[in-house]
Design a protein around this nucleic acid. Structure first.
Lengths: 132, 132
DNA sequence: TTGATATTTCGATATTTTCCGATATATCAT
DNA sequence: ATGATATATCGGAAAATATCGAAATATCAA
């Protein structure tokens, strides 16, 4: 629970963003690593990293480092907060969010190495495309 | 309930703002006119008007015109939406919001004419102060 | 060590938002 | 009608945010 107006507004801002909201909703069923999130949502990996930084600052997610990978998950305590509960109740009815979850299942069935290398290749091919 | 991601994000943005959040919370116990809100929150009338426009666009409030006055209230249907319920549960614990409610009671005990003229005078005195 | 890989941080630009006084509009009172 | 009052909209400058490739950091593997 936020203890002042400022904090609550910061939490709301963190979540008032299509990518960040999708990321948060995506993590509810369980932790994912950064590259898995990037692959599911099909966005640049640095954008995912920045989205996660904001969600962390707002106190919604935490990370767990495992070698090269960073696994992120929703802070359990937050899941029971009225705000997040209400928000997720709405979010989980959205077609975009449901689709992301389906895609997440597929990605979880692949090896992380495969997923991450795919994401890295996307980074490189974007770079080359931008060179034109 | 929002039917797509975009709409939900717009609703969250509408409420991710200290003034707008305070205005929304202030209206929950019952309708107020624009000048009453300006007086309670001690902000320029045009700022209140703009805050209300955003809250209206997001579907949180509606207005009722009565002569020169515009009374605004929370859309009853929204009050039962998971998002707003959760949000208000948090908001109503905040010291700022509780203080606003106390002040609202005082303002409601004054005649609207008195309150509005006070607000108008504030507009003018701000103008003069800015001239320096 | 060297190179590959996963992630974060930086840089720089583009876009959006915020804020509030000034102005416009609408309604009332006389 | 005229002036006063309540609200909405405008203007525009300052601040905040978004975006994403590039560069930096950290870890693994050979």
């Amino acid at each position: 629970m936020a203890h002042d107006l400022r904090t609550l507004v910061e939490q709301l801002k963190a979540v008032s963003h299509p990518l960040r909201l999708r990321v948060l909703a995506l993590l509810v069923p369980g932790e994912l690593c950064v590259c898995q999130v990037a692959e599911v949502l099909q966005v640049p990996q640095s954008s995912v990293s920045e989205a996660l930084r904001e969600l962390r600052r707002a106190g919604f997610v935490v990370e767990r480092k495992e070698g090269r990978w960073v696994f992120v998950s929703v802070v359990p305590k937050k899941t029971s907060s009225p705000l997040l509960k209400g928000l997720l109740a709405e979010a989980e009815t959205l077609p975009e969010v449901l689709q992301d979850r389906v895609r997440a299942k597929e990605v979880k069935d692949m090896s992380i190495l495969t997923v991450c290398s795919k994401v890295q290749k996307a980074v490189i091919s974007n770079r080359e495309a931008a060179r034109v």
